[in-house]
């Protein structure tokens, strides 16, 4: 059997900077298989963002283990983890972190090039992703000239540019109106059907509804972990019942 795409073992995060230590994540076990789409949900302050930031190596763990593919990641040096991340992980942040001095097109192509794609592959991938997110005509703009919703879609395109083994996302539709959310949903659905593994923190039920599995956090612990079943009845009446 192949390795899980991502694995956390008894993962703990304590923030000890303040007067009282904050136990943000209290012993989370999580195993994500290749191709799975996991929605991480829960009230604010339940530890969701901290969890995915640790999984992506953007925040250090206090204790526990993180495995990316078959590789133990939490014991790697910062630079070694950066290298692993460049190859295997795409990350969409709540705030977009685009490179201000580069065009939208270059922001999206860069991770593909860093991940080892040829310039032509990187360009084709970028054209496809920007097209799918209705951003083709913004390719030459600088990020500063985009709306929040546009920047967020660029950040998603960038995270998908190197076809990462795992896409980690923290509220990727937080700044989008309904129509833009629909483009994002369509793209996420498409890459997921093509086998993209996704772990996504979201409050957006539309996005979570695409997932195969929901992990609910409460007070730093996993309180629910299970499959999201579809009835697939095919008839509209069975789904919509507004009285």
């Amino acid at each position: 059997m192949s390795d899980p795409a991502l694995k956390a073992v008894n993962l703990v995060k304590v923030y000890s900077g303040g007067a009282v230590p904050v136990h943000a994540v209290r012993g989370v076990d999580l195993q994500v298989e290749p191709g799975e789409f996991v929605a991480v949900m829960g009230p604010s302050g339940s530890g969701k963002s901290t969890l995915v930031h640790m999984l992506g190596g953007l925040d250090t763990r206090t204790s526990g283990e993180i495995w990316v593919g078959g590789t133990r990641a939490d014991t790697l040096s910062e630079s070694a983890w950066a290298l692993l991340r460049r190859k295997k992980i795409g990350f969409v942040f709540q705030f977009f972190n685009l490179v201000a001095s580069m065009t939208v097109a270059d922001n999206v192509e860069l991770p593909a090039l860093l991940g080892g794609a040829s310039p032509r592959e990187a360009r084709e991938r970028r054209e496809h992703l920007l097209g799918a997110l209705n951003l083709t005509d913004r390719a030459d703009a600088s990020p500063a000239r985009l709306s929040g919703g546009e920047q967020q879609r660029v950040a998603l395109a960038r995270a998908l540019a190197n076809k990462p083994s795992v896409l980690l996302a923290d509220e990727p539709t937080g700044n989008l109106d309904s129509r833009n959310t629909r483009d994002v949903l369509r793209l996420l659905g498409e890459v997921h059907r093509d086998g993209q593994t996704i772990v996504m923190v979201t409050h957006d039920a539309r996005v979570a509804g695409l997932a195969d599995r929901v992990v609910a956090l409460f007070d730093g612990e996993v309180v629910d972990d299970g499959r999201i079943t579809r009835r697939r009845t095919g008839t509209a009446g069975a789904v919509i019942d507004l009285r």
């Binding site: 929605a39 949900m41 629909r182 949903l185 369509r186 659905g189 039920a205 539309r206 979570a208 509804g209 695409l210 997932a211 929901v214 609910a216 409460f218 309180v223 629910d224 299970g226 999201i228 079943t229 579809r230 009835r231 697939r232 009845t233 509209a236 069975a238 789904v239 919509i240």
Partner: peptide, 24 residues
């Protein structure tokens, strides 16, 4: 209560999945 909430959350998400399919 926790079990009730968790079950209900899965139910809502499953309905949402159906709505996503319908929208598509």
């Amino acid at each position: 209560r926790m079990a009730l909430i968790n079950r209900q959350r899965r139910h809502y998400l499953s309905l949402m999945g159906d709505l996503n399919d319908l929208q598509a």
